[in-house]
Amino acid sequence: MADKVHVTTLLNGESVEFLCAPSQTLLECLRDILGLTGAKNGCNDGNCGACSVLLDGRLANSCLVLGAEADGRTVITIEGLADWAGLHPIQQSFVEEDGLQCGCCTPGMIIAAKALLDREPNPSDGRIREWMAGNLCRCTGYETITRAVRRAAAHLNGEGAEG
């Protein structure tokens, strides 16, 4: 077994250090070493999106990133979105639009939505569905998720929560 790797990363705005095996994925590091279980292991091969995080601002399946690769990079997980002031507008929109049922895909969906809205403030419904196609949901049929992203976009664009 290879030596452990020392990783320093900016995780949800805080500098975090940890030791991991070189073969451990960022998802395993988050869940088993750092105790952040918001990112889910739905397939462990990049086909469901439940483990989505932002790595240097980019959407990533954390099951396809080694923990070691996060060294010196910034990582944002679902736990990093809300603060004491309340939910992030995307989270709020998922609540308001019933953009979740069982909630297992939800952290990944919200992270994917953030990655989209960070780069495209006004996506069409078609664009939302295309961008979110890497995030499987087995409960909702995707319509309320699409609406939640649309609502969040309107809110973030200053059009008010009713947009």
């Binding site: 999106g49 989505s52 990533a60 396809l64 994917a112 990655a115 890497g134």
Partner: peptide
Amino acid sequence: IGGSAIRQR
């Protein structure tokens, strides 16, 4: 290739 997250990597 893949989906949006895969294409970022």
